[in-house]
Amino acid sequence: MSNGFHDQVIAILPKLRVQALALTRNRAAAEDLVQDAVCNALSAQASFIPGTNFAAWMHRILRNRFISNLRKRRDTTDIDDVPASAFATDAPHEDRLALKDLSKAMNRLPADQREALVMVVVQGMSYENLAEATGCAVGTAKSRVFRARRQLEAWLMGEPLQRGSAQAARAAQLTRALQSRLAPSADRVSAS
């Protein structure tokens, strides 16, 4: 095993752990997934082309291993502990509550959106590298992150009207009507 390859594997481990936690939502399963992915990478070391994107190659191995494990098992453990340590440590009480809400909301996201969001926002991966790592088009990668952000915002802001633009337009119309009824009354009071 070449020293450079070994060093790259060690350097990418923290990011692989974050990705594995986003996929599995279970610390023990995430550690097992990272270990399996590293073993796969070491055995496939000869297939890695030096000078190409090592991080994307490793993330793809981890993701493929996760999918392979899902196909074998067909059921996953659903534990509500996205690691708050991935976002912050020693936060004030209000921040810890916000992180807990964010963690619950993240767990509600579809796996592909959660994975994309973690890889881009937490790990700082580019959309191009995300697309390469997950085997999708760049537009699909951007769409997954956008939809995840939009859905998280909706959930964390109290799930605003989601039944379509007709209901939202009706609510806006009712608000304007109420404001117009109150405005003349205020004018009459001030005129007296």
Rank of each mutant, 00 (worst) to 15 (best):
I67Q: 13
R71T: 12
A88D: 08
F5E: 01
I49M: 11
E115M: 09
V118P: 00
A186G: 03
R147S: 06
V82W: 15
A186T: 03
Y127I: 06
V122S: 06
L99H: 01
I12L: 12
S180D: 08
N129P: 00
S68R: 14
Y127R: 00
P160V: 02
A183L: 10
T175A: 15
L102R: 10
A166F: 05
S2V: 05
E94T: 08
G124A: 00
P50A: 10
S190K: 09
L102E: 00
P92C: 03
A46V: 14
C136Y: 08
S165T: 08
D80W: 12
A148G: 14
A166T: 05
N69H: 10
A28N: 10
T140S: 14
S126C: 08
L130H: 03
D7Y: 03
A154D: 15
R149D: 03
T89N: 11
W57Y: 14
V138S: 02
P110K: 11
R188Q: 13
D78F: 12
G139S: 13
K100Y: 10
R96F: 07
N107S: 12
G158S: 01
L109I: 02
L156K: 03
F87K: 00
W57Q: 06
I12F: 07
A166I: 07
A172G: 07
M157Q: 11
